[in-house]
Write a protein that binds this DNA or RNA. Structure first.
Length: 174
DNA sequence: CCCTGATTCGC
DNA sequence: GCGAATCAGG
């Protein structure tokens, strides 16, 4: 696998978005995380603020609040990215929207919604959240990817959504 | 043990 | 230029 202009551009983009080297490697395919890191250095791209720091901290930067996301599963469910201040950090959250009934399923105010790690399919492991985000037919489709404790398929936040019946959610919203 | 980026150096 | 091996760390 060689570094075509296209792949270099994608590398730059994902690196600037704060994805980790291994995440970028998996999304590019055909390269190791070492290869990604090596390329980053050769391109003289800015390194991470703190070596070995959590990807979350490096990724937390200022985000625009508006800009609704592209529709999700074409018809019924969409997600919208919004930001919220939580202590010193900005959280980016995917808010679900029922496009038919125009209901927004917002997390409770006291719930800390983790920033998605945006993992690709090949990056998922036994302990990463497999909650899908976005349109599977589009390039930015990814999975939540945050830690899923006790071998659950979802992180603690998405567990709540996953096992909550739709009609209950709607009733709660009304 | 899971993960992170940084560096070195043979290729 | 490339990236595996290694280092240093959370």
């Amino acid at each position: 696998m060689n570094w075509t202009d296209e792949r270099v551009e994608k590398l730059k983009k994902l690196w600037s978005e704060g994805l980790s080297a291994s995440q970028i490697a998996a999304q590019l395919g055909g390269v190791s995380r070492n290869a990604v890191i090596g390329k980053v250095h050769r391109l003289s791209l800015p390194g991470r603020a703190k070596a070995g720091g959590t990807a979350t901290a490096a990724r937390a930067p200022k985000r625009n609040t508006s800009a609704p996301r592209a529709p999700n599963y074409a018809s019924r469910v969409a997600t919208r990215t919004v930001t919220r201040q939580q202590g010193a950090t900005m959280l980016k959250e995917e808010v679900e929207i029922d496009t038919v009934n125009e209901i927004e399923y917002r997390p409770a105010a006291n719930v800390v919604v983790p920033i998605s790690r945006r993992l690709g399919l090949t990056e998922l492991t036994e302990r990463t959240c497999k909650w899908p985000v976005g349109d599977p037919l589009k390039d930015d489709f990814h999975f939540c990817g945050n830690d899923s404790p006790d071998s659950s398929p979802y992180c603690t936040y998405h567990q709540r959504l996953a096992y909550q019946p739709v009609h209950d959610r709607r009733r709660a919203a009304h």
